[in-house]
Amino acid sequence: MHKLLAGQRRKIVLLTLLLILTFILAVLSGRYPRPGLIPPQLLFEDPMAMSLVLQLRLPRVIAAVLLGAGLAGAGTVFQMIFANPLVEPGFLGVSQGAAFGASLSIIAFSSSLWIVQISAALFALLGLASSYALARHFRFGGWVLRLILAGIAVSALFSSGIGLLKFIADPMSQLPEITFWMLGGLYSVEWRHIFSILPVALLGLAVMFGYRWRLNLLSMDDRTAFSLGLAPFRERLLLLATATLVSAAVISVSGIVGWVGLIVPHIGRRLLSSDSRASLPASILIGAIYVLLCDTFARTLMDGEIPLGVLTSLIGAALFIFLLTGRKIKRGKFLARESA
């Protein structure tokens, strides 16, 4: 349709309201003064409560929103550009590359925020570029299969690199930081982390949002996209670099958080439409809600904190299996339509 259908627009509005509600609940829930929701009036009576919410919970909740939105937006871009509903940044060497870059920086240079982030971003781009280059040189299989295989190979190389770095890391100071990276979590987030990723994350999301219709065109065959007056190579490169930088920025704060970029775009497409004018904003909102919920559970369910990456993968994989096998959702509708 020339504009989003009324139903799609209503769903976007609903998702936005749901995000706001989740945001408020997440800020209020925690384990102080007792597990559960903090009564809002307590915030004004108890300076400790106020400070806890402003200094610890708020930056963490904002980080969760940015992380979810960034990964889901990047996942949608990857899936559209590779015309493959089974890719996400983690599948193409981006996440492992970022983790390797961060670990390398922690060991070899410095664990200062900016240097870790820049190193993570550089290696994320390198991961993507090497997966792409390797896929071009593979001698069997279709393009999509080659790309996924190349991504697995590049990710494995980076993983073994991380293993090596862990081996030589100082077990007291450096190893815990690297381990945090691999498990993924937001417990150490402070305002300075938010300010350091906010520009890249917002600018990147704005670029993706601006290109939301054109993403449909970029999912077409090269020759078709070209005949529609595009410069497909250049435009894909711009969006891939944007998606990779956004992923690297949010991952640099959270460590590796899997499955969000894979599963959320599927939900977005199923709930609204395959047209990325609808599915991209929907995925960004759903991703933010999903990670926010997971992170809130991660810090409130048990006395200790559950690693966020473990939780998103657990729920993500369960959702994926449910989507593929669930009786209500016909299998043909999910995969045959999108990947057959």
């Binding site: 349709m1 601006g210 219709w213 065109l217 435009e235």
Partner: peptide, 27 residues
Amino acid sequence: ERVRFDYSVLEYLLLGRAPYLSQLEMP
């Protein structure tokens, strides 16, 4: 040509307007 995602016929046809729209413009 394979249609990779599940577009409606009209959504698919609108792709043909690409040469008349700037990069960030919607149909």
